[in-house]
Amino acid sequence: MRKEVLEQVKAFRILKNSIRDSFKSVFRNFSLSIASVLCTTITLILVAIAIVVTVNVNYVTKSMEKELTIVVYANRDVTDEQINNIESSIKKIDVVDNVEFKSKEEWKLEMKQYSETLEVTLDNLDTNPLLDSFVVKVKDVKDLSPTTREIRKIDGVQSADYGEGMVEEIISAFNVIKTATIGMVIALIIVTAFLISNTIKLTIFSRRSEIDIMRLVGSSNTSIRLPFVFEGFLLGVIGSFIPMIVTVYGYFILYEKLGSSATFSIVELVKPFPFVFYTSIILLVIGALVGMIGSARAVRKYLKI
């Protein structure tokens, strides 16, 4: 029992020493530490750019997708009861998100506001030539086509359209953009992992004699690896500071210049908060994890007996 406690105390001491040594060795091997930190910084900035692009492209495509609706026109001679029936039938469809009714009178008023010609024309007509309508939003754009087909079957519906053909093309273009940007982020993270891992390998290569001595004096593989893993963690965390700052400031500036500008209102950007906060956390986690894993992998090579 006492032996077990002693072993635990020893393990804790080794852990404590490892953390202390990792701080020391960052400064002892200063030039190599700088190299690792710079490498992490540069690649994480690229990752940050890729994340910003991906998230915003997704955001823009999502908001554009939201604008895609089904316009349903009721027959000319529908009664109020039939209108209610159409509305409740549409609402019964699972994938329908929102149904908005617009009477022919509302249409008339709206159109009269567009131009004077329309106003005069509509006023001179004895009857309202417009139709009662519904604007239907679906939960997912891929439901547009089947939902439209289903709505067309409802009694009292004259037509239901969503811009067939063009919408499909837009959606497939959005999907390509989304896949490409996500692929870019993943590829950049992998490249970062390799770059950081290789830089750390160089650092560790120059310290193989230290590892050799540790092995010869009876350090267990875990206690040899620990200080290097902590060091990798430290270098990763330090290396992610500048990308975090660049992300926060850079994005705020970008948002002010592009996102909130009236001329570019079509490119509405994701609001900076909490987006920059999450992105910074992601960069920190990537930096720390890649640093740790890179170091652990690099030391393993020198631990084989």
């Binding site: 105390v9 020893k10 393990a11 001491r13 080794i14 020493n17 002892r28 004699s209 230290e210 050799d212 001595i213 540790m214 010869l216 004096v217 009876g218 350090s219 206690s223 040899i224």
Partner: peptide
């Protein structure tokens, strides 16, 4: 173990080099 090429850590003092062996084993 003693080697021909000493295998000392150049950035540690004499004391630290010797103490290193004991620190490594958690003393």
């Amino acid at each position: 173990i003693v080697f021909q090429d000493f295998k000392l850590l150049p950035k540690l003092t004499v004391y630290e080099n010797v103490a290193f062996a004991l620190e490594c084993i958690g003393m």
